[in-house]
């Protein structure tokens, strides 16, 4: 029962984080939301018994990709251009 609730919470959090990445105009906030998305995705991989993929996702998705996005935002502009 507890595992079921945790699994559902992780899935709902995944959808919310993905929607936030899409919604945010501030690209720094979007990058942080993407880091949260990657972290929840690695939790989901762990729940689905794929610890290999979970470690890779936590290291690359949550750690390195966020850092690379930060560097890219620092080199360009922080806010998304209005249409």
């Amino acid at each position: 029962m507890i595992a079921m609730i945790a699994h559902t919470l992780v899935l709902v959090g995944l959808v919310i984080a993905a929607a936030l990445v899409f919604r945010f105009r501030d690209l720094l906030s979007a990058a942080i939301a993407f880091g949260v998305f990657s972290f929840l995705l690695s939790l989901e991989f762990y729940i689905l018994q794929a610890p290999d993929v979970a470690i890779a996702e936590a290291g690359i998705g949550a750690g390195l990709t966020t850092a690379i996005y930060m560097v890219a935002i620092k080199g360009t502009e922080r806010t998304e251009a209005e249409e």
Binding site: I55, G59, G63, L64, A67
Partner: peptide, 29 residues
């Protein structure tokens, strides 16, 4: 640990290398 125990426990070269690189990126940050 992940790299050295890659043939016994989940993980391996790619995952361990990514974790170590995350540590270097932390130092850079």
């Amino acid at each position: 640990y992940i790299v050295a125990h890659g043939h016994l426990t989940p993980g391996g070269g790619f995952q361990g290398g990514a974790v170590i690189a995350t540590g270097f990126v932390l130092l850079i940050a």
